[in-house]
Design a protein around this nucleic acid. Sequence first.
DNA 1: AAGCAAACCTAACGTTTGTTAGGTAGCATA
DNA 2: TATGCTACCTAACAAACGTTAGGTTTGCTT
Lengths: 192, 192
Amino acid sequence: MSVTISRREIILQEAAHLFREKSYPGANLRELARRAGIQGGSIYHHFASKQEILFQLMDNTMSDMIERLTERLSDADSPLEKLRRTVFFHIEYHVTGPDQTYITDEELRNLETENYLMVVAKRDRYQKIIENILSEGQVEQGWQLDEPKLYSRALIKMCAGVSTWFKPQGDLTIAQIAEAYTKLFCNGLLPR
Amino acid sequence: MSVTISRREIILQEAAHLFREKSYPGANLRELARRAGIQGGSIYHHFASKQEILFQLMDNTMSDMIERLTERLSDADSPLEKLRRTVFFHIEYHVTGPDQTYITDEELRNLETENYLMVVAKRDRYQKIIENILSEGQVEQGWQLDEPKLYSRALIKMCAGVSTWFKPQGDLTIAQIAEAYTKLFCNGLLPR
DNA sequence: AAGCAAACCTAACGTTTGTTAGGTAGCATA
DNA sequence: TATGCTACCTAACAAACGTTAGGTTTGCTT
């Protein structure tokens, strides 16, 4: 039943946590190594540089997000159902792996050019999926949106923001928040 | 017509820009001094420490935001009008001073305890203003929201996010974006 | 038993960092 | 003209940093 987890994986997990706590430049490798249970220099057995750790972290996260979202949407028929699942997924993913998503959302500026371009490309692919759902709804269901891109951005920021205040032991579940946000996004707050 | 701007003010402005570019721990004081037109050590004539620069930056920004938003709301009569102005203000402020607001939104973790508590207190005061508008609308206008706090957070994140992609020379004005977001927040995207 | 590679340790390197001490230039006041 | 204050410069400090070189342990393979 126990899952074997490589040291490399441990380092990546601890790095996500540490980078979120102190930001990438503020985190140091000796501290990271300590948390991963090894000595400072040993990090370089698993990664070529501090930068590579950041890149792997962000690139893995983006790939995973695209893959999982795509899978969740695969058997959704209507645009509304797709939107529901996207809101739920985006919130859930950000709340479940808050360290990884936070880093991926906020540390783009600390990526070197080549790495930056790769991660941004994947981020754009992810955003495009959501934008397409809104465009679909606009055409097929007459959703009221002038600029799909504008609204997809609003949706993404809105949902991602949940992880900054969400507490698992709080009185709201992820499902409740996702439902409320879906309702808000679809109906607005004025009475119908 | 020209405005006198103190060196202290210049340092704060350049610090906002530099911190946003490299994050607080990633920015160094020699570079900041260079941009402000003085030598590294001279910073300490104006500030006691690097930390104090960050704190002044964030504290000033929060105070300014509270003051300005309060003023804008002072002669708004209905909750809907207050909401409209809030959305517009929040977007406008984030887009106009993107460095300051970005720092204030993202660098809380790098504040020492005492400074952290002061800035968070002001941030909460600001959020409370918005939360109260939603509560008002709920009571007086029957706005559909179960948890005002949940929706105020969504609104804040949504609007603040604009500054991450907004380009002044782009084809959308702040007013257009603000209008679209107000409409989205009030009506949702389903046709009425 | 020998060989080998992966995983890790230790100690040091050169650089960069925030910060400080002590000095100088310019200007206003007396 | 002397005094003193503000705004700055220069040079150095100790600490922390990413990174590297070289050595040791461990466990598998032949």
